[in-house]
Every structure is written in C-alpha cells, then in structure tokens.
Design a protein around this nucleic acid. Structure first.
Ligand SMILES: [Mn+2]
Ligand SMILES: [Mn+2]
Ligand SMILES: [Zn+2]
Ligand SMILES: [Zn+2]
Lengths: 150, 150
DNA sequence: CGTTAATCAGTAATAGTTACCATTATGGAT
DNA sequence: ATCCATAATGGTAACTATTACTGATTAACG
C-alpha cells in the first residue's frame, strides 16, 4: 500500500498541464504535452500517475463507452458529451442527478451505488459540414430525378 | 457494401445461442458456447458476425465503460446495471428516457442525438458477502476496543 | 448445375494499457 | 546537512481485446 504520494516533477507537470485544459485529453495527449517540458518522461509514468492521481481524487478518470480513457482536471460529478464527428468531449452543464439512482433502485434487486451517463451528438463545428453534405445529397437526388428518362 | 446477409450455420448458431441467454455475454463467452456446436468456428467469425448482426439491428452491441464489449439478444433501448462484485450485467426495467436528451440539448450547443446510461452496484449474490465482511470488521473493532489496556 | 460475391478459418497485426525491473530521487528521521 | 527506506522512474516487454488480411469455401441467385 502507498504511504504517501511524493511530489515528483513528473507528477507536478502532469497535474499542471491537465489543469490548464478544459478539454478531456487521452493519456497520450497528456504525454505529448508533458514531453515538451520533460522530454525524458515515459508514457508508462504518465499512465501510472494519471491512475494514482485519479485514485486519490485529484483528477478524474473518464472511462467512456467504446473508446480509450480520458482524463479530467475538473473534479465533481458532471456529465459529458462526445461529438460523433470529431471525437471531442465536452462538459455538459447538467447536475448529476442522484435521484436517478433511487428511482432505479426501486426497479431492481441490486444495491445501486452510482450511474454514468454519456451523451452523443454533433458539436458546433461539426453541425454545419453535416447539413452542407445533406444539402448536396438532396441536390444530387433532385438532379437525378429531373435528369432520368423513364 | 453488403448486398444481403446470408444465412450461414455459424451466423445462425451465434444468433440462437445469444437468444437463449438473458445475460449479456462477451464475444469470447459466445465463442465458447458456439464452439460446442461448431467446434471449427473461429473467434474472428464470431466477432465479425456480432458486428454485422448488431449493425443490421438483430442484436445489440453494448459498449460499456472501461470493459470489453458485451452483446444483447434483446433489442430496444433499455439501461443496464453492472455488479461491482462479480461483473455480471443485468437489464434494468427503466424505460429509456428520451426527454433527458431534450433537457440536455437546452444546456448545450451540441446537436444531441442520444444518451447512454449505466448503473453500478452490488447484485443480490454479492450484497450478502459484503455485509458479512462488514460485520466481521465491526466485531474486530469492538473486540479491539474491549481488549485494549490503555 | 454454374457463377459470383459473401463468408469462412486461420493467423498476423494493431491499439491501448499494464507489468516488470534495475536505477534514481524524495522526504522523514537522524 | 546527511542518511536511508522505499516510492517512483525510464525503458521495455507483455498482455488483452479487437480488427485486418488472405486464400479457400459456400450460400444464393437464376
Ligand atoms: Mn469534464
Ligand atoms: Mn439488456
Ligand atoms: Zn465535432
Ligand atoms: Zn455480483
């Protein structure tokens, strides 16, 4: 068992770099950032520290469905939304609803402790290209209908 | 693009075995079951078919947080709960609430399409051992208090 | 039947993450 | 300030779940 978390330069820089961001970087993205300040740090050290820091409650580890882990400098329970287009993850300003757990507990013989919720959709940057693509497709269809000889 | 999903013996048996279960097996668990009837089937075939079958809406692929994929013969949107003790996944008889998406959309500039929710807790089998362990710990503490000479 | 694309078994490759281990550095006790 | 036990590190190997590839097989169509 770990007596105490020592303050190493690696650990401090990881924490600082994560603190600067409002995004939710992957371990590798954090590695690339930290490497600019500590070029000799190893990816394993980044993983180990992100794990230890999240265990001690200084950061949050996000295990999202189907993709790699992401990390969050903002603690406190909040929900996230992932863009289907570009993959970015943002906070959702919706308070984590503890009442959902109680509602679920009534329907189950489990002892329910928590829930995770994740939203999916298109971020502002990805909404426009998608509708443009839709318009082009519609035009193609119209052209096709107009042009055909049946 | 796939013209048509052919009915192969492998595909049929995978679908049958998954249909028998109310649990939510992993690809490997399905592989082990199917192997009893088709000993020469390969794990790759199981993965490929589970993917194709879920794409065509005949089964459901569950991408849960932090663990491997699971598959569900029951279609239709419903929530799941995972036991922290033994890892099993059960259905939760709570209707998937589409209104949550709308509530979230008001708080975000994303175009929200869906949400996933996953509950965590202890299943009936794992509640008892846990409370027993708790009782023993309490007894130890009491014994310790009674026994000490300070 | 014969044709053809879908599917197969077997296997290699990949991605993300964790485990290991010899060496280094931290922080509390001298 | 120096010492020391051990936490932590860099480098690398191992691992797990999943996907990709490839040449052989097979279902579905007329
Ligand atoms: Mn966040
Ligand atoms: Mn289910
Ligand atoms: Zn986007
Ligand atoms: Zn259990």
């Amino acid at each position: 068992m770990t007596e105490h978390l020592r303050e190493t330069s690696q650990r401090r820089v990881i924490l600082e770099e994560l603190g600067k961001l409002t995004s939710h970087p992957t371990a590798n993205e954090i590695y690339e950032l930290v490497r600019k300040r500590l070029p000799r740090i190893s990816l394993g050290t980044v993983y180990r520290n992100l794990e230890l820091l999240s265990q001690s409650g200084l950061i949050q580890k996000l295990e999202m469905a189907g993709t790699q882990k992401r990390f969050d400098g903002t603690i406190g329970n909040h929900y996230h939304i992932r863009c289907i287009g570009c993959g970015r993850v943002d906070d959702l300003r919706l308070p984590a609803m503890k009442s959902i757990d109680e509602a679920a507990a009534d329907l189950s013989d489990y002892e329910i402790l928590w829930h995770k919720m994740e939203f999916g959709g298109f971020c502002p940057d990805c909404i426009t290209p998608r509708s443009k693509r839709g318009e082009i497709e519609i035009l193609d269809i119209k052209k096709n209908i107009i042009g055909r000889k049946d």
